[in-house]
């Protein structure tokens, strides 16, 4: 087994053993689902049962998928990576005979996948009980790989974003901004069809849509397989970007010092 796979496996096991944290996160996700179920049911009811092509049934599956895909990653990861970089703690990781960003991504991926599976299992049951089965079996079949790709895109983008700390020495609070970009332009809070047309077009062209909108769109019964290709392309681009940022940042540390 190579180092990255071993790291992902160890992290997944660790996440499974941190039962308190896992339970809090899944409970938080369940609370969000209860709130959004009430909000979107009321909203659809007040608009004759459908808004921008989504009825209450598809909206709730949209929300469960979008929230579940995003909640799997740690919300303040950018802050903690930035801290490791600015404090110099990352230097010890550079001594290992493996890619720093690769090992970090593998560790986060292992944990995130455990949280993703647990959250979606609970969320699926809640929404199923609330509005019934998913709108489309084919949509759900496409949603499964889409949710994994979404987590991958999110992790890679957060590492690329946090890598700015190699130069800025401070990534505190920037996670707020990143999070809001995922919430709004990524379609986590609202389907992109709810945005004004021009803004929706911009949002579709950005990577954030691959982190929430794409899996949610598929889970809400819109069978659009080409969205998986968009996600795969963004994943490759974001991984290259994160790798490039860390490579340049590590060279800078080696030359200038931490």
């Amino acid at each position: 087994m190579n180092a990255l796979a071993a790291q992902a496996l160890i992290s997944a096991r660790r996440a499974l053993h941190q039962r308190g944290e896992l339970a809090v996160r899944v409970a938080f996700y369940a609370i969000i689902l209860v709130i959004f179920s009430a909000l979107w049911s009321a909203a659809a009811g007040a608009n004759g049962g459908s808004i921008s092509g989504y009825d209450a049934h598809s909206l709730l599956w949209y929300v469960a998928a979008a929230e579940g895909s995003v909640i799997a990653t740690k919300p303040r990861m950018i802050e903690s990576i930035g801290w490791d970089i600015s404090s110099g703690a990352i230097v010890t990781e550079m001594l290992r005979p493996a890619s720093v960003v690769g090992l970090r991504l593998a560790a986060e991926l292992g944990e995130a996948l455990v949280r993703l599976v647990c959250s979606l299992a609970v969320g699926g049951v809640i929404v199923w009980l609330y509005v019934g089965q998913p709108p489309s079996a084919a949509g759900i079949a496409l949603f499964v790989p889409a949710s994994f790709l979404a987590v991958g895109c999110n992790l890679a983008a957060q590492h690329a974003f946090a890598g700015a700390a190699f130069w800025l020495r401070d990534a505190r609070s920037t996670w707020f901004l990143y999070q809001k970009l995922v919430f709004l332009l990524g379609g986590m809070l609202l389907p992109l069809e709810f945005l004004p047309t021009a803004l929706a077009d911009v949002a579709r062209a950005l990577p954030f849509a691959s982190m929430a909108y794409v899996p949610a769109r598929l889970a809400s019964g819109h069978v659009e397989p080409w969205l998986l290709l968009v996600q795969a392309a963004w994943l490759a681009g974001l991984l290259a970007c994160a790798g490039g940022v860390f490579w340049a940042g590590e060279r800078r540390l080696e030359v200038v010092g931490g």
Partner: peptide, 20 residues
């Protein structure tokens, strides 16, 4: 940053009620 975060929520609510 926190004020910008709050502005994002204001945008969410404006977009939400614009549709709903």
């Amino acid at each position: 940053i926190m004020a910008a975060n709050d502005v994002a929520w204001v945008i969410f609510w404006v977009l939400f009620f614009r549709k709903v």
